[in-house]
Amino acid sequence: MVAALRVLAALAYLVLLAAPLAVILYAFSPTAAFEIPPSGLSLRWFAALTDQPRLISGLVTSLWLGFGAAAAALACGIPAALALSRGSLPGRNIVLAVLLSPLSLPGLVLGLGILTTASAFAAAGGPALVGTFLPLGAAHLLITIPWVTRSVAASLESAAPELEEQARSLGAGPLTTLFLVTLPTARPGIVAGAVSAFVISFGNFALSLFLASGRTVTLPVAIFEAVDRYQDPTVAAISTVTILVTAAAAVVADRFAGVMQLRGPARRRERGRAGSAP
């Protein structure tokens, strides 16, 4: 059984990493031709990135947008998940479907819809919103909230509510229970939701395209522009740099805050004991 598990997991990693590895290999290719095995290694496409300020500024914009969207989505999504999974909320499943279904709107449709709204707002005498970060940020928030809400709700559903009841019966107030019992319990879901929200925002192209202005060029848009001009490994190089930068940021964050560990080893043992106590 464990062997079968390992084989499937290896297959999963093959599916996950085949395409990105091919792109990374291509980034080091000496020419624009993709060769297996490579005829040599070259850094010329990385050097060429210095001529591509839009790619670099796009990466910075996307990182900020992604972090901002993830943080804002946590602020909106965690309370929603609490309301949905603790206590009996009438129409709970419908509310969950309403929160999640905007995900099924194609970026083109949602982008044009938000553009229409902002345009009508401006025509009615409001300030011109298109070209600012507001519609773009709001759109990214809309598509990231569901990931946080759903992940946190799932985590809360998987956790035994008895733990909270015990805390309450031991005299803890509602807020104390929330911060010291409920949220730590939902930590795996919070982390999964935050990571999902970040990558969803970071990778979104269609919305950014329709709500883009000169000031809001995100990385996917800048990549689209670069590919449209010349089809050489420059784009593979910026993608490689992106992964390295983001991985470095994640490692640093992990060192200081343990964000990538869905649950830290020390606490796991403690909760294991706590879980077996009752």
């Binding site: 990693y13 996950l16 990493l17 085949a18 395409a19 990105p20 590895l21 091919a22 792109v23 291509y26 990571v195 990558v199 970071f202 990778g203 192209f205 990385l219 996917p220 990549i223 689209f224 590919v227 784009v235 593979a236 993608s239 992106t242 992964i243 983001t246 991985a247 994640a250 490692v251 990538m260 560990q261 869905l262």
Partner: peptide, 19 residues
């Protein structure tokens, strides 16, 4: 976790090219 998430840091267009 990083290994699992890393493909998503590459733009869809670029990953499609990888495929």
């Amino acid at each position: 976790t990083l290994l699992v998430v890393s493909p998503l840091l590459m733009s869809t267009v670029v990953r499609a090219y990888g495929w």
